[in-house]
Design a protein around this nucleic acid. Sequence first.
DNA 1: TATAAAAAGTACGAGATCGTACTTTTTAAG
DNA 2: CTTAAAAAGTACGATCTCGTACTTTTTATA
Lengths: 233, 233
Amino acid sequence: MTVNGNGCLTCKVRKSSVLEPCAIGTLSAISTFKNSRKFEKGEFLFKEGEEVKGVFFIKKGVVKVLKEVPGYRTLIFKVCAKGEIVGHRGYDSKNIHKYSGVALSETECCFVPIVFFKEILRDSPDLEKQLMEEYLIDLERMEQKSMSLAYKSVKEKVAEAILLVSGVYDYHVKRRSFNIDLSRQDFADLTGTTKEQVSAVLKEFSRDSLIRYSGKKFNFIDLDALKSVAATY
Amino acid sequence: MTVNGNGCLTCKVRKSSVLEPCAIGTLSAISTFKNSRKFEKGEFLFKEGEEVKGVFFIKKGVVKVLKEVPGYRTLIFKVCAKGEIVGHRGYDSKNIHKYSGVALSETECCFVPIVFFKEILRDSPDLEKQLMEEYLIDLERMEQKSMSLAYKSVKEKVAEAILLVSGVYDYHVKRRSFNIDLSRQDFADLTGTTKEQVSAVLKEFSRDSLIRYSGKKFNFIDLDALKSVAATY
DNA sequence: TATAAAAAGTACGAGATCGTACTTTTTAAG
DNA sequence: CTTAAAAAGTACGATCTCGTACTTTTTATA
Protein backbone atom coordinates (compact mmCIF):
# COMPACT_ATOMS: atom_id res chain seq x y z
CA MET A 1 0.00 0.00 0.00
CA THR A 2 1.47 3.29 -1.04
CA VAL A 3 0.72 6.35 0.98
CA ASN A 4 2.70 9.02 -0.71
CA GLY A 5 2.52 12.36 -2.44
CA ASN A 6 1.83 10.60 -5.68
CA GLY A 7 -1.88 10.35 -4.81
CA CYS A 8 -5.14 10.66 -6.71
CA LEU A 9 -5.38 14.44 -6.23
CA THR A 10 -2.38 15.07 -8.41
CA CYS A 11 -2.84 12.06 -10.70
CA LYS A 12 -2.38 13.02 -14.32
CA VAL A 13 -4.99 10.54 -15.59
CA ARG A 14 -7.66 11.70 -13.15
CA LYS A 15 -9.26 14.05 -15.63
CA SER A 16 -10.34 11.13 -17.78
CA SER A 17 -11.62 9.11 -14.85
CA VAL A 18 -14.78 8.61 -12.84
CA LEU A 19 -12.83 10.24 -10.04
CA GLU A 20 -12.65 13.53 -11.89
CA PRO A 21 -15.56 15.24 -10.14
CA CYS A 22 -14.99 13.54 -6.79
CA ALA A 23 -14.43 15.45 -3.58
CA ILE A 24 -10.99 15.75 -2.05
CA GLY A 25 -12.04 13.50 0.80
CA THR A 26 -13.01 10.74 -1.59
CA LEU A 27 -9.75 11.05 -3.48
CA SER A 28 -7.53 11.04 -0.44
CA ALA A 29 -9.39 8.04 0.92
CA ILE A 30 -8.68 6.14 -2.26
CA SER A 31 -5.09 7.35 -2.27
CA THR A 32 -4.64 5.90 1.18
CA PHE A 33 -5.78 2.42 0.27
CA LYS A 34 -4.62 2.02 -3.30
CA ASN A 35 -1.56 0.17 -4.40
CA SER A 36 0.09 -0.08 -7.76
CA ARG A 37 -0.02 -3.22 -9.84
CA LYS A 38 1.44 -4.16 -13.18
CA PHE A 39 0.25 -6.65 -15.76
CA GLU A 40 1.97 -8.01 -18.80
CA LYS A 41 0.38 -8.27 -22.19
CA GLY A 42 -2.13 -11.11 -22.15
CA GLU A 43 -2.31 -11.28 -18.38
CA PHE A 44 -5.69 -11.38 -16.64
CA LEU A 45 -6.44 -8.52 -14.23
CA PHE A 46 -9.41 -10.55 -13.05
CA LYS A 47 -11.31 -13.57 -14.30
CA GLU A 48 -14.95 -14.41 -14.79
CA GLY A 49 -16.11 -16.69 -12.01
CA GLU A 50 -13.47 -15.58 -9.56
CA GLU A 51 -14.14 -13.66 -6.40
CA VAL A 52 -13.92 -9.89 -6.66
CA LYS A 53 -10.80 -8.75 -4.85
CA GLY A 54 -10.85 -5.08 -5.73
CA VAL A 55 -11.18 -2.44 -8.42
CA PHE A 56 -8.63 -1.24 -10.93
CA PHE A 57 -7.95 2.25 -12.18
CA ILE A 58 -5.90 2.09 -15.35
CA LYS A 59 -2.88 4.36 -15.28
CA LYS A 60 -1.12 3.03 -18.35
CA GLY A 61 -1.93 0.47 -21.01
CA VAL A 62 -5.09 -0.94 -22.56
CA VAL A 63 -7.45 -3.56 -21.15
CA LYS A 64 -10.12 -5.63 -22.86
CA VAL A 65 -13.26 -6.57 -20.94
CA LEU A 66 -14.79 -9.79 -22.17
CA LYS A 67 -16.81 -12.89 -21.60
CA GLU A 68 -15.75 -16.28 -22.93
CA VAL A 69 -17.46 -19.50 -23.73
CA PRO A 70 -14.58 -21.73 -22.66
CA GLY A 71 -13.06 -23.51 -25.61
CA TYR A 72 -15.43 -21.83 -28.00
CA ARG A 73 -15.64 -18.09 -28.40
CA THR A 74 -15.05 -14.75 -26.79
CA LEU A 75 -16.94 -11.50 -26.93
CA ILE A 76 -15.16 -8.27 -26.05
CA PHE A 77 -17.57 -5.82 -24.44
CA LYS A 78 -15.26 -2.87 -24.29
CA VAL A 79 -11.68 -1.75 -24.51
CA CYS A 80 -10.52 0.49 -21.69
CA ALA A 81 -7.57 2.85 -21.66
CA LYS A 82 -5.95 5.04 -19.04
CA GLY A 83 -8.24 6.78 -16.61
CA GLU A 84 -10.91 4.11 -16.81
CA ILE A 85 -12.11 1.94 -13.98
CA VAL A 86 -12.49 -1.83 -14.45
CA GLY A 87 -13.60 -4.73 -12.34
CA HIS A 88 -15.89 -2.53 -10.31
CA ARG A 89 -19.07 -4.33 -11.15
CA GLY A 90 -18.73 -7.81 -9.78
CA TYR A 91 -19.44 -6.69 -6.26
CA ASP A 92 -23.20 -7.20 -6.38
CA SER A 93 -25.00 -10.04 -4.63
CA LYS A 94 -22.41 -12.76 -4.95
CA ASN A 95 -19.09 -10.92 -5.26
CA ILE A 96 -18.18 -12.95 -8.30
CA HIS A 97 -16.83 -11.49 -11.53
CA LYS A 98 -19.26 -11.88 -14.41
CA TYR A 99 -16.61 -11.19 -17.02
CA SER A 100 -12.85 -10.95 -17.36
CA GLY A 101 -10.33 -8.17 -17.79
CA VAL A 102 -7.23 -8.88 -19.86
CA ALA A 103 -4.27 -6.60 -20.54
CA LEU A 104 -3.81 -5.89 -24.24
CA SER A 105 -0.47 -4.22 -23.55
CA GLU A 106 1.76 -3.78 -20.56
CA THR A 107 -0.58 -2.23 -18.06
CA GLU A 108 -0.22 -0.30 -14.84
CA CYS A 109 -3.12 0.10 -12.46
CA CYS A 110 -4.05 1.54 -9.13
CA PHE A 111 -5.71 -1.27 -7.27
CA VAL A 112 -8.14 -0.64 -4.42
CA PRO A 113 -9.10 -3.71 -2.37
CA ILE A 114 -12.84 -4.24 -2.39
CA VAL A 115 -13.39 -3.85 1.36
CA PHE A 116 -11.84 -0.41 1.30
CA PHE A 117 -13.57 0.54 -1.91
CA LYS A 118 -16.95 -0.40 -0.48
CA GLU A 119 -16.22 1.58 2.64
CA ILE A 120 -15.16 4.64 0.67
CA LEU A 121 -18.23 4.25 -1.52
CA ARG A 122 -20.49 4.22 1.50
CA ASP A 123 -19.34 7.69 2.51
CA SER A 124 -18.99 9.17 -0.98
CA PRO A 125 -22.22 10.01 -2.74
CA ASP A 126 -20.14 11.74 -5.41
CA LEU A 127 -18.33 8.54 -6.27
CA GLU A 128 -21.54 6.55 -6.09
CA LYS A 129 -23.19 8.96 -8.50
CA GLN A 130 -20.27 8.60 -10.88
CA LEU A 131 -20.48 4.83 -10.74
CA MET A 132 -24.20 4.99 -11.45
CA GLU A 133 -23.43 7.15 -14.46
CA GLU A 134 -20.82 4.59 -15.51
CA TYR A 135 -23.39 1.80 -15.37
CA LEU A 136 -25.78 3.80 -17.50
CA ILE A 137 -23.07 4.42 -20.09
CA ASP A 138 -22.22 0.72 -20.12
CA LEU A 139 -25.88 -0.17 -20.51
CA GLU A 140 -26.33 2.17 -23.43
CA ARG A 141 -23.15 0.78 -24.95
CA MET A 142 -24.34 -2.79 -24.60
CA GLU A 143 -27.73 -1.98 -26.07
CA GLN A 144 -26.08 -0.39 -29.05
CA LYS A 145 -23.73 -3.34 -29.35
CA SER A 146 -26.62 -5.77 -29.25
CA MET A 147 -28.25 -3.94 -32.14
CA SER A 148 -25.04 -4.20 -34.12
CA LEU A 149 -24.48 -7.85 -33.32
CA ALA A 150 -28.05 -8.69 -34.23
CA TYR A 151 -28.47 -6.79 -37.44
CA LYS A 152 -25.24 -5.46 -38.89
CA SER A 153 -23.15 -7.18 -41.52
CA VAL A 154 -19.58 -8.17 -40.80
CA LYS A 155 -18.40 -5.25 -42.88
CA GLU A 156 -20.46 -2.77 -40.88
CA LYS A 157 -19.35 -4.27 -37.60
CA VAL A 158 -15.68 -4.19 -38.51
CA ALA A 159 -16.00 -0.54 -39.55
CA GLU A 160 -17.55 0.11 -36.17
CA ALA A 161 -14.73 -1.69 -34.43
CA ILE A 162 -12.09 0.36 -36.25
CA LEU A 163 -13.84 3.53 -35.14
CA LEU A 164 -13.93 2.27 -31.58
CA VAL A 165 -10.26 1.38 -31.64
CA SER A 166 -9.27 4.67 -33.24
CA GLY A 167 -11.05 6.36 -30.33
CA VAL A 168 -9.21 4.31 -27.74
CA TYR A 169 -5.89 5.23 -29.34
CA ASP A 170 -7.00 8.82 -29.74
CA TYR A 171 -6.64 8.89 -33.48
CA HIS A 172 -7.31 12.15 -35.27
CA VAL A 173 -6.67 13.32 -38.78
CA LYS A 174 -3.51 15.15 -37.84
CA ARG A 175 -1.90 12.06 -36.37
CA ARG A 176 0.21 10.16 -38.79
CA SER A 177 -0.34 6.65 -37.54
CA PHE A 178 -0.86 4.58 -34.45
CA ASN A 179 -0.04 1.09 -33.32
CA ILE A 180 -2.87 -0.97 -31.94
CA ASP A 181 -2.50 -3.73 -29.39
CA LEU A 182 -5.43 -5.70 -30.74
CA SER A 183 -4.95 -8.75 -32.90
CA ARG A 184 -7.23 -9.71 -35.76
CA GLN A 185 -8.76 -12.19 -33.37
CA ASP A 186 -9.47 -9.34 -30.96
CA PHE A 187 -11.28 -7.54 -33.77
CA ALA A 188 -13.23 -10.72 -34.38
CA ASP A 189 -14.08 -10.99 -30.69
CA LEU A 190 -15.20 -7.39 -30.75
CA THR A 191 -17.53 -7.94 -33.68
CA GLY A 192 -18.72 -11.47 -33.10
CA THR A 193 -17.11 -12.78 -36.26
CA THR A 194 -13.93 -14.61 -37.25
CA LYS A 195 -10.35 -13.49 -37.77
CA GLU A 196 -10.53 -14.57 -41.41
CA GLN A 197 -13.45 -12.25 -42.04
CA VAL A 198 -11.66 -9.43 -40.28
CA SER A 199 -8.60 -9.86 -42.50
CA ALA A 200 -10.75 -9.85 -45.60
CA VAL A 201 -12.74 -6.78 -44.61
CA LEU A 202 -9.64 -4.84 -43.57
CA LYS A 203 -8.14 -5.57 -46.95
CA GLU A 204 -11.30 -4.42 -48.67
CA PHE A 205 -11.31 -1.19 -46.67
CA SER A 206 -7.69 -0.66 -47.61
CA ARG A 207 -8.44 -1.24 -51.28
CA ASP A 208 -11.26 1.32 -51.03
CA SER A 209 -8.92 3.77 -49.25
CA LEU A 210 -10.94 3.88 -46.06
CA ILE A 211 -7.90 2.88 -44.08
CA ARG A 212 -4.23 2.25 -44.65
CA TYR A 213 -2.46 -0.27 -42.50
CA SER A 214 0.33 -2.73 -42.24
CA GLY A 215 0.09 -5.32 -39.53
CA LYS A 216 -0.87 -3.46 -36.38
CA LYS A 217 0.15 -0.04 -37.61
CA PHE A 218 -2.79 2.00 -38.82
CA ASN A 219 -2.98 5.39 -40.47
CA PHE A 220 -4.89 7.49 -42.98
CA ILE A 221 -8.23 6.50 -41.58
CA ASP A 222 -11.17 8.07 -43.32
CA LEU A 223 -13.36 8.37 -40.25
CA ASP A 224 -16.34 9.81 -42.09
CA ALA A 225 -16.35 7.10 -44.71
CA LEU A 226 -16.07 4.45 -42.00
CA LYS A 227 -18.95 6.01 -40.10
CA SER A 228 -21.01 5.87 -43.22
CA VAL A 229 -20.12 2.20 -43.73
CA ALA A 230 -20.78 1.40 -40.07
CA ALA A 231 -24.24 2.90 -40.62
CA THR A 232 -24.70 3.67 -36.96
CA TYR A 233 -28.42 3.70 -36.51
CA MET B 1 -53.27 12.24 -9.20
CA THR B 2 -54.75 9.71 -6.85
CA VAL B 3 -54.16 10.09 -3.18
CA ASN B 4 -56.15 7.28 -1.68
CA GLY B 5 -56.02 4.18 0.40
CA ASN B 6 -55.11 2.19 -2.64
CA GLY B 7 -51.45 3.18 -2.26
CA CYS B 8 -48.08 1.45 -2.70
CA LEU B 9 -47.99 0.11 0.86
CA THR B 10 -50.88 -2.21 0.22
CA CYS B 11 -50.20 -2.78 -3.48
CA LYS B 12 -50.50 -6.44 -4.36
CA VAL B 13 -47.76 -6.34 -6.99
CA ARG B 14 -45.26 -4.64 -4.68
CA LYS B 15 -43.61 -7.88 -3.67
CA SER B 16 -42.32 -8.37 -7.21
CA SER B 17 -41.14 -4.79 -7.57
CA VAL B 18 -38.06 -2.68 -6.89
CA LEU B 19 -40.22 -1.04 -4.24
CA GLU B 20 -40.41 -4.24 -2.24
CA PRO B 21 -37.65 -3.40 0.24
CA CYS B 22 -38.34 0.33 0.29
CA ALA B 23 -39.11 2.26 3.45
CA ILE B 24 -42.64 3.36 4.26
CA GLY B 25 -41.68 6.98 3.67
CA THR B 26 -40.50 6.18 0.16
CA LEU B 27 -43.66 4.25 -0.62
CA SER B 28 -46.04 6.86 0.68
CA ALA B 29 -44.16 9.56 -1.23
CA ILE B 30 -44.64 7.60 -4.43
CA SER B 31 -48.26 6.91 -3.55
CA THR B 32 -48.84 10.63 -3.24
CA PHE B 33 -47.55 11.49 -6.67
CA LYS B 34 -48.48 8.50 -8.76
CA ASN B 35 -51.46 8.31 -11.05
CA SER B 36 -52.90 5.40 -12.93
CA ARG B 37 -52.58 5.05 -16.68
CA LYS B 38 -53.85 2.50 -19.15
CA PHE B 39 -52.43 1.44 -22.50
CA GLU B 40 -53.94 -0.66 -25.21
CA LYS B 41 -52.17 -3.49 -26.96
CA GLY B 42 -49.59 -2.01 -29.31
CA GLU B 43 -49.60 1.41 -27.68
CA PHE B 44 -46.32 3.09 -26.76
CA LEU B 45 -45.77 3.88 -23.08
CA PHE B 46 -42.82 5.98 -24.16
CA LYS B 47 -40.78 6.38 -27.32
CA GLU B 48 -37.08 6.45 -28.09
CA GLY B 49 -35.99 10.01 -28.73
CA GLU B 50 -38.79 11.57 -26.73
CA GLU B 51 -38.34 13.46 -23.52
CA VAL B 52 -38.66 11.44 -20.33
CA LYS B 53 -41.90 12.42 -18.64
CA GLY B 54 -41.93 9.90 -15.83
CA VAL B 55 -41.53 6.31 -14.74
CA PHE B 56 -43.99 3.44 -14.99
CA PHE B 57 -44.71 0.67 -12.54
CA ILE B 58 -46.58 -2.12 -14.28
CA LYS B 59 -49.67 -3.22 -12.41
CA LYS B 60 -51.22 -5.36 -15.12
CA GLY B 61 -50.18 -6.49 -18.59
CA VAL B 62 -46.91 -7.08 -20.38
CA VAL B 63 -44.55 -4.51 -21.91
CA LYS B 64 -41.73 -4.96 -24.41
CA VAL B 65 -38.68 -2.72 -24.15
CA LEU B 66 -36.99 -2.23 -27.50
CA LYS B 67 -34.91 -0.20 -29.86
CA GLU B 68 -35.79 0.19 -33.53
CA VAL B 69 -33.95 1.08 -36.65
CA PRO B 70 -36.82 2.97 -38.25
CA GLY B 71 -38.12 1.16 -41.29
CA TYR B 72 -35.68 -1.66 -40.80
CA ARG B 73 -35.55 -3.77 -37.71
CA THR B 74 -36.32 -3.95 -34.04
CA LEU B 75 -34.53 -5.55 -31.13
CA ILE B 76 -36.45 -6.35 -27.97
CA PHE B 77 -34.21 -6.01 -24.93
CA LYS B 78 -36.61 -7.35 -22.38
CA VAL B 79 -40.21 -8.19 -21.68
CA CYS B 80 -41.59 -6.80 -18.44
CA ALA B 81 -44.59 -7.98 -16.49
CA LYS B 82 -46.41 -6.76 -13.41
CA GLY B 83 -44.31 -5.36 -10.63
CA GLU B 84 -41.56 -4.20 -12.93
CA ILE B 85 -40.45 -0.64 -13.46
CA VAL B 86 -39.93 0.74 -16.97
CA GLY B 87 -38.86 4.01 -18.47
CA HIS B 88 -36.74 4.85 -15.46
CA ARG B 89 -33.46 5.05 -17.26
CA GLY B 90 -33.72 7.93 -19.66
CA TYR B 91 -33.21 10.50 -16.97
CA ASP B 92 -29.46 10.74 -17.30
CA SER B 93 -27.67 13.63 -18.95
CA LYS B 94 -30.18 14.57 -21.60
CA ASN B 95 -33.52 13.33 -20.30
CA ILE B 96 -34.23 11.58 -23.57
CA HIS B 97 -35.44 8.00 -23.89
CA LYS B 98 -32.87 5.72 -25.47
CA TYR B 99 -35.41 3.01 -26.22
CA SER B 100 -39.14 2.48 -26.36
CA GLY B 101 -41.72 0.71 -24.25
CA VAL B 102 -44.68 -0.88 -26.01
CA ALA B 103 -47.66 -2.65 -24.47
CA LEU B 104 -47.96 -6.27 -25.61
CA SER B 105 -51.36 -6.55 -23.99
CA GLU B 106 -53.77 -4.21 -22.30
CA THR B 107 -51.61 -2.66 -19.65
CA GLU B 108 -52.21 -0.74 -16.46
CA CYS B 109 -49.45 1.28 -14.83
CA CYS B 110 -48.75 3.56 -11.95
CA PHE B 111 -47.10 6.59 -13.46
CA VAL B 112 -44.84 8.88 -11.44
CA PRO B 113 -43.91 12.15 -13.13
CA ILE B 114 -40.17 12.54 -13.41
CA VAL B 115 -39.82 15.66 -11.27
CA PHE B 116 -41.47 13.94 -8.35
CA PHE B 117 -39.61 10.71 -8.94
CA LYS B 118 -36.28 12.52 -8.91
CA GLU B 119 -37.24 14.33 -5.74
CA ILE B 120 -38.28 11.10 -4.03
CA LEU B 121 -35.09 9.46 -5.23
CA ARG B 122 -32.98 12.21 -3.73
CA ASP B 123 -34.30 11.43 -0.27
CA SER B 124 -34.51 7.66 -0.62
CA PRO B 125 -31.20 5.81 -0.52
CA ASP B 126 -33.19 2.58 -0.37
CA LEU B 127 -34.85 3.27 -3.69
CA GLU B 128 -31.60 4.44 -5.21
CA LYS B 129 -29.90 1.24 -4.12
CA GLN B 130 -32.69 -0.77 -5.71
CA LEU B 131 -32.35 1.13 -8.96
CA MET B 132 -28.61 0.55 -8.95
CA GLU B 133 -29.31 -3.15 -8.50
CA GLU B 134 -31.76 -2.95 -11.39
CA TYR B 135 -29.11 -1.43 -13.66
CA LEU B 136 -26.69 -4.17 -12.77
CA ILE B 137 -29.26 -6.83 -13.57
CA ASP B 138 -30.00 -5.15 -16.89
CA LEU B 139 -26.29 -4.96 -17.66
CA GLU B 140 -25.77 -8.62 -16.95
CA ARG B 141 -28.82 -9.42 -19.05
CA MET B 142 -27.54 -7.36 -21.97
CA GLU B 143 -24.10 -8.94 -21.79
CA GLN B 144 -25.66 -12.37 -21.87
CA LYS B 145 -27.88 -11.31 -24.73
CA SER B 146 -24.92 -9.98 -26.68
CA MET B 147 -23.20 -13.33 -26.34
CA SER B 148 -26.29 -15.06 -27.66
CA LEU B 149 -26.78 -12.66 -30.53
CA ALA B 150 -23.14 -12.95 -31.50
CA TYR B 151 -22.61 -16.67 -31.32
CA LYS B 152 -25.79 -18.66 -31.00
CA SER B 153 -27.68 -20.23 -33.86
CA VAL B 154 -31.25 -19.24 -34.59
CA LYS B 155 -32.42 -22.50 -33.05
CA GLU B 156 -30.54 -21.84 -29.82
CA LYS B 157 -31.78 -18.28 -29.65
CA VAL B 158 -35.40 -19.24 -30.20
CA ALA B 159 -35.12 -21.88 -27.47
CA GLU B 160 -33.78 -19.16 -25.21
CA ALA B 161 -36.64 -16.85 -26.14
CA ILE B 162 -39.24 -19.51 -25.32
CA LEU B 163 -37.65 -19.98 -21.92
CA LEU B 164 -37.72 -16.24 -21.34
CA VAL B 165 -41.34 -16.00 -22.34
CA SER B 166 -42.34 -19.00 -20.26
CA GLY B 167 -40.78 -17.17 -17.32
CA VAL B 168 -42.69 -13.98 -18.00
CA TYR B 169 -45.94 -15.93 -18.11
CA ASP B 170 -44.94 -17.94 -15.08
CA TYR B 171 -45.09 -21.30 -16.80
CA HIS B 172 -44.42 -24.38 -14.75
CA VAL B 173 -44.94 -28.05 -15.39
CA LYS B 174 -48.21 -28.19 -13.52
CA ARG B 175 -49.79 -25.47 -15.64
CA ARG B 176 -51.72 -26.80 -18.54
CA SER B 177 -51.08 -24.03 -21.02
CA PHE B 178 -50.64 -20.30 -21.34
CA ASN B 179 -51.42 -17.68 -23.93
CA ILE B 180 -48.63 -15.40 -24.96
CA ASP B 181 -49.05 -11.87 -26.20
CA LEU B 182 -45.98 -12.01 -28.43
CA SER B 183 -46.28 -12.50 -32.16
CA ARG B 184 -43.82 -14.50 -34.23
CA GLN B 185 -42.33 -11.17 -35.20
CA ASP B 186 -41.83 -10.37 -31.52
CA PHE B 187 -39.94 -13.62 -31.15
CA ALA B 188 -37.86 -12.61 -34.14
CA ASP B 189 -37.19 -9.19 -32.59
CA LEU B 190 -36.19 -10.92 -29.39
CA THR B 191 -33.70 -13.16 -31.13
CA GLY B 192 -32.42 -10.94 -33.92
CA THR B 193 -33.82 -13.16 -36.63
CA THR B 194 -36.90 -13.27 -38.87
CA LYS B 195 -40.47 -14.39 -38.31
CA GLU B 196 -40.06 -17.07 -40.97
CA GLN B 197 -37.18 -18.62 -39.07
CA VAL B 198 -39.17 -18.48 -35.85
CA SER B 199 -42.07 -20.33 -37.45
CA ALA B 200 -39.75 -22.98 -38.78
CA VAL B 201 -37.92 -23.49 -35.50
CA LEU B 202 -41.14 -23.60 -33.46
CA LYS B 203 -42.42 -26.27 -35.77
CA GLU B 204 -39.22 -28.23 -35.41
CA PHE B 205 -39.40 -28.00 -31.61
CA SER B 206 -42.99 -29.18 -31.78
CA ARG B 207 -42.03 -32.11 -33.97
CA ASP B 208 -39.30 -33.02 -31.48
CA SER B 209 -41.80 -32.71 -28.61
CA LEU B 210 -39.96 -29.86 -26.89
CA ILE B 211 -43.08 -27.75 -27.00
CA ARG B 212 -46.68 -28.06 -28.01
CA TYR B 213 -48.49 -25.06 -29.31
CA SER B 214 -51.22 -23.75 -31.50
CA GLY B 215 -51.02 -20.13 -32.50
CA LYS B 216 -50.31 -18.20 -29.33
CA LYS B 217 -51.36 -20.95 -26.97
CA PHE B 218 -48.42 -22.88 -25.58
CA ASN B 219 -48.23 -25.91 -23.36
CA PHE B 220 -46.27 -29.06 -22.59
CA ILE B 221 -43.00 -27.23 -22.64
CA ASP B 222 -40.01 -29.42 -21.91
CA LEU B 223 -38.01 -26.79 -20.09
CA ASP B 224 -34.97 -28.98 -19.52
CA ALA B 225 -34.75 -30.01 -23.15
CA LEU B 226 -35.08 -26.39 -24.21
CA LYS B 227 -32.35 -25.37 -21.80
CA SER B 228 -30.14 -27.98 -23.29
CA VAL B 229 -30.88 -26.71 -26.81
CA ALA B 230 -30.39 -23.09 -25.75
CA ALA B 231 -26.95 -24.20 -24.52
CA THR B 232 -26.72 -21.34 -22.07
CA TYR B 233 -23.03 -20.86 -21.61
C1' DT C 1 -71.59 -15.28 -39.40
C1' DA C 2 -69.50 -13.26 -43.43
C1' DT C 3 -65.61 -10.75 -44.98
C1' DA C 4 -61.44 -8.31 -44.93
C1' DA C 5 -57.11 -7.75 -42.93
C1' DA C 6 -53.46 -9.36 -40.36
C1' DA C 7 -50.59 -12.96 -38.76
C1' DA C 8 -48.55 -17.35 -39.37
C1' DG C 9 -46.78 -21.16 -42.04
C1' DT C 10 -44.18 -22.95 -46.01
C1' DA C 11 -40.85 -23.52 -49.66
C1' DC C 12 -36.91 -22.19 -51.78
C1' DG C 13 -33.19 -19.52 -54.20
C1' DA C 14 -29.66 -15.88 -53.29
C1' DG C 15 -26.31 -14.42 -50.55
C1' DA C 16 -23.60 -14.06 -46.32
C1' DT C 17 -20.81 -16.23 -43.01
C1' DC C 18 -18.08 -19.80 -41.14
C1' DG C 19 -14.24 -22.55 -40.62
C1' DT C 20 -10.75 -25.63 -42.71
C1' DA C 21 -6.49 -25.92 -44.87
C1' DC C 22 -2.89 -23.77 -46.52
C1' DT C 23 0.69 -19.98 -47.46
C1' DT C 24 2.89 -15.87 -46.10
C1' DT C 25 4.34 -12.57 -42.86
C1' DT C 26 5.45 -10.97 -38.43
C1' DT C 27 7.06 -11.50 -33.90
C1' DA C 28 9.79 -13.43 -30.29
C1' DA C 29 13.64 -16.03 -28.63
C1' DG C 30 18.13 -17.93 -28.76
C1' DC D 1 21.14 -12.97 -37.45
C1' DT D 2 18.83 -17.30 -37.44
C1' DT D 3 15.12 -20.06 -36.37
C1' DA D 4 10.81 -21.39 -34.36
C1' DA D 5 6.36 -20.10 -33.21
C1' DA D 6 2.61 -17.22 -33.57
C1' DA D 7 -0.24 -14.22 -36.17
C1' DA D 8 -2.09 -12.76 -40.44
C1' DG D 9 -3.61 -13.41 -45.11
C1' DT D 10 -5.94 -16.19 -48.67
C1' DA D 11 -9.03 -19.28 -51.03
C1' DC D 12 -12.93 -21.94 -51.10
C1' DG D 13 -16.59 -25.39 -50.09
C1' DA D 14 -20.24 -26.26 -46.59
C1' DT D 15 -23.61 -24.35 -44.04
C1' DC D 16 -26.67 -21.05 -42.26
C1' DT D 17 -29.65 -17.30 -42.65
C1' DC D 18 -32.37 -14.14 -45.04
C1' DG D 19 -36.10 -12.56 -47.46
C1' DT D 20 -39.39 -13.15 -51.32
C1' DA D 21 -43.52 -15.07 -52.80
C1' DC D 22 -47.09 -17.60 -51.87
C1' DT D 23 -50.72 -20.29 -49.12
C1' DT D 24 -53.13 -21.06 -45.00
C1' DT D 25 -54.86 -19.77 -40.66
C1' DT D 26 -56.28 -16.63 -37.30
C1' DT D 27 -58.17 -12.45 -35.75
C1' DA D 28 -60.94 -8.41 -35.98
C1' DT D 29 -64.94 -6.12 -37.54
C1' DA D 30 -69.13 -5.30 -39.74
